[in-house]
Design a protein around this nucleic acid. Structure first.
Lengths: 194, 194
DNA sequence: TAGTTTTATTATCTTTTGATAATGAAATGC
DNA sequence: GCATTTCATTATCAAAAGATAATAAAACTA
């Protein structure tokens, strides 16, 4: 299949979800727009309706809540993943979460409107949406269950095992809120472990 | 649309997700089996592959984790909802969660295999799966974010507001683990509030 | 109904985490 | 390259939650 290099990573991921012929693939890539953004760039603001989702070709981004002026990290995403304020994107309601880049990013921007049009034309792409939602659910479930089942210390250990890149690429105070503790508390956990 | 009374509640819910003609609706109801089970009945065990999901016509059920012999509640579901160990059901992998009834239940049992066959025949039902996954994600996201954003006391207050039926129909020690605290701690929270 | 088991509350003590502040290290911006 | 800001660690103290045990209340069961 002919694929522009800019879409090769997306192709690899989408191939896991469904099989497309050339025409379908062209229609699919047609709804994405390439965008290059610097470090600390704000992609989604709390309160705005998020009309875009982002596939990360290169870089890192962060999904976070705002509570009393504090930023509380919900997730970190790197190359070859989608990032979106999914509830806002799906329901087109004001977002409870914001998205910033952590590094300069090369993104493929997916507009909700164009995705909906694509699905109208090719109902097959319901499978794409379904796969995204199922994957998001399963990832979130694993994360949420660790808040119910594990102590902050266990959560930190699990993160090291399962997502070591987070430690490499994300400032520690953002990791702290991701784990549900204060930066001070995370520093104590790290000391206890070492 | 002709609908047996046993499917009327399901019909009401599924109507919100997609529009079906008589033939499609008959095919859909054809993959469900009615099952009546007593209180405290075990529907899914940890470690088993969950090949069924359940629509609750009547009654209440609980989804829970097991940790060191303890049962830790993940969710409670009542009439007109689906309940499933969704990760296990979707991926057909061993379940991390168990399901028990809290009350005698009248269930419509949906088998994964028959759902897959139905989707093969009528690709339209991808929309059903998509809607289930999206809804599950959004519900879980709201719950997970309250573990990140709120104190146990705030979580209890939110539960009273948003899902007061839980207090009515679920024993307090199960609510405690659902909120991420011990029964002793929940009792203290209740005292502080009153 | 009486007896047993389960459940909720309260008390005591310990552990953990949060809040705050101080210090040093690192990163950022002119 | 120097000054400023941001970030991570450490210390101290306060608050909250966990562990355990005792008691009372409620629910089950024979």
């Amino acid at each position: 299949m002919k694929t522009e290099p800019i879409f090769s990573q997306l192709h690899q991921q989408v191939n896991k979800m469904l099989t497309l012929n050339q025409k379908e693939w062209d229609a699919f890539t047609g709804i994405f727009v390439f965008r290059s953004v610097p470090k600390k760039f704000n992609l989604v603001r709390v309160g705005d309706v998020s009309r875009e989702a982002y596939f990360i070709n290169k870089g890192a981004a962060r999904l976070y809540f705002e509570k009393e002026g504090e930023e509380i990290s919900a997730n970190f995403m790197f190359e070859n993943s989608f990032i979106a304020s999914l509830e806002s994107f799906l329901l087109q309601t004001p977002s409870r979460q914001a998205i910033d880049t952590l590094e300069g990013c090369e993104l493929l921007v997916l507009s909700k409107q164009r995705l909906d049009e694509l699905i109208q034309t090719y109902p097959k792409f319901h499978i794409f949406s379904k796969a995204i939602a199922e994957m998001a659910f399963i990832m979130l479930q694993r994360r949420a269950s660790s808040f119910i089942l594990d102590s902050p210390e266990e959560r930190y250990m699990n993160m090291l095992q399962q997502r070591p890149e987070i430690l490499e690429r994300v400032p520690q105070h953002m990791i702290a809120s991701y784990l549900g503790v204060t930066p001070v508390s995370l520093s104590r956990i790290r000391k206890r472990i070492s």
